[in-house]
Design a protein around this nucleic acid. Structure first.
Lengths: 243, 243
DNA sequence: GAGTGGTCTAGACCACTCA
DNA sequence: GAGTGGTCTAGACCACTCA
């Protein structure tokens, strides 16, 4: 029988939630894999099923686990459903939603500028890889993206032709470099476009662009990628409900 | 003993949640008032306390109810904590967060332009009131707001001097017109500023502004106010976490 | 049909509030 | 000390999955 560590003043369901979260971060199970059943966890930890369910409820509402009635409870594969990129109107002429194509313009190893080394929590001037790419819909540029990766686990990116891959980078990180993006923080700002980026997006210098910065992390919370994407403000509309 | 209406195929906690939500919308209790205790609801509806707790849990996570251990469960006063306006950096020079002052420039009755009558769900050209106001921090303009109200419940706004009131309109709506804002939808876009708004915000025409549109509703979901606010993009930074 | 999560109950005991 | 919500248990039965 396992036992719950952590602060004994906390409720049992909270302590179980923390213990499970820690094991998930330590990769005890892979994305898509099932954790033990509620009954198993209950007997392992000497808790009632109700208490185990409450711990799992918390991790489900945090989007870390996913229940499937009759099948089990699974480590959730990251969906990026809530990404701010969803709020760019990337539609084809026929109106259906599409993933923009990718055209990689630059792939280069370099030493990290200070903003990059700070974001990725690397030492100053650490070895990094910089990507510059354009995202297009029906040959129209919709986003310019600058992407920074620590060189160490991502070295293999330098040896392949990214333009022969699909438009999504995260599957490549996973298959080529064994790095899984589990969560991300995004921030949204707006600014007048620079000369260079305006030319790439085919809009006049000074036109408003929406800037989305994203720091992506693995399951342990370790930064994997930092990117800054710019898209035409006229294609962006974000909504929230307030109560 | 009360009985649960609604679809008998739904779980009991879901049906109780719906029934409570309906009574809250129908103003059975005021904001800040307590609903009956869990034990009372359980015996009234012939349910176990566990089932009642699950229904209340749902309404709590929807920010409709608020629990206070030892005191009771209360109708939540709207907080507007999650409003997009929170992401404007409205700080004084000393760095503390402030509610910007309000200077009302225009208060006029008129017939609704089509965008306004559609948003407020009024008939075309219905009588409305238009406000134009500037929000300032230490005499610096930070937001321009256009606000539209249906004339019928808000008539009294025309008879007072809004510049002698505080900067917040919702308490005035409540005290003067008996209208309580319970929820709102907001959308965020960015655009180059017009000549007129640029002059009010003291920025060059064409500089990027963040535009926040808000439709505010009462407890029954009836639209009460539509506003469109513009602020300098350089003062705006919005963050989300993705999993 | 064995195994999973989903719903629901009845009840014990605890922590907190407030007169 | 009476009354509130918070935690936890043990167990029944249901709905769904999958071989």
């Amino acid at each position: 029988m396992n036992s719950l560590l952590s602060d004994v003043r906390l409720p049992l369901y909270q302590r179980l939630r923390d213990q499970l979260a820690q094991q998930i971060a330590a990769n005890r199970w892979r994305a898509g894999e099932a954790i033990p059943t509620e009954a198993t966890l209950a007997s392992e930890y000497g808790l009632s099923v109700g208490t185990v369910r409450k711990a799992i409820d918390m991790l489900v509402s945090e989007h870390i686990l996913e229940r499937q009635q009759g099948r089990g409870t699974f480590i959730r594969r990251p969906q990026f459903d809530s990404s701010l990129f969803r709020f760019f109107r990337f539609q084809s002429l026929s109106g259906e939603r599409q993933v923009p194509e990718s055209r990689v313009l630059v792939v280069e190893p370099m030493s990290a500028p200070s903003a990059v080394s700070e974001s990725l929590r690397l030492r100053p001037e650490a070895d990094v890889i910089r990507l510059l790419r354009l995202r297009l819909l029906e040959s129209e540029p919709v986003l310019v993206e600058e992407i920074w990766l620590p060189r160490e686990p991502f070295e293999a990116i330098l040896d392949i032709d990214l333009n022969e891959q699909g438009p999504l980078l995260y599957p490549i990180y996973e298959q080529l470099c064994g790095q899984v993006v589990a969560s991300a923080d995004e921030t949204l700002t707006a600014e007048p476009v620079s000369d260079v980026h305006g030319r790439l997006l085919r809009i006049a210098e000074g036109s408003p662009v929406v800037v989305i910065e994203r720091l992506a992390r693995d399951y342990a919370g370790q930064p994997l990628e930092w990117r800054r994407s710019r898209g035409r403000a006229s294609h962006f509309r974000y909504s929230v409900e307030i109560r």
